[in-house]
């Protein structure tokens, strides 16, 4: 199964992220998403839970989330677990591992 990574830095791209994720899953790709900086604001988007269900792996940068004003320990977004409150190393893992990659 080919792997498809999406690196998200922008809070305005939820429609694109959802569209690409669903299209890639329909083609049998394994989809991994990492949200950082203002992209972590999407963790509060009403569609975020649906995105977590659609993708195979979703993680966010806990440090960025904190900088956006949220508590990464006590306010874990719905759809994620504590271990998915991650670091930039997750971006490294996506780049290491994925056949296809895009930034949004």
């Amino acid at each position: 199964m080919a792997k498809f990574g999406i690196f998200v830095t922008n809070a305005k791209n939820m429609a694109h992220i959802m569209g690409v994720t669903k299209a890639a899953k329909a083609k049998g790709e394994y989809v991994k998403i990492f949200l950082t900086w203002k992209g972590t604001l999407l963790a509060k988007d009403p569609q975020f839970r649906e995105l977590c269900n659609a993708a195979d792996e979703v993680a966010i940068c806990a440090d960025s989330y904190k900088k956006m004003g949220y508590d990464p320990q006590n306010d874990i977004p719905e759809g994620l677990t504590e271990k998915e409150m991650s670091t930039q190393a997750k971006h490294g893992y996506i780049i290491d591992d994925d056949d296809n990659y895009m930034t949004l």
């Binding site: 080919a2 498809f4 694109h16 569209g19 690409v20 669903k22 299209a23 890639a24 329909a26 083609k27 790709e29 056949d99 296809n100 895009m102």
Partner: peptide
């Protein structure tokens, strides 16, 4: 057309 986009990326 996200389907076409993913095809092109692949």
């Amino acid at each position: 057309d996200y389907d076409a986009l993913v095809d092109k990326i692949i």
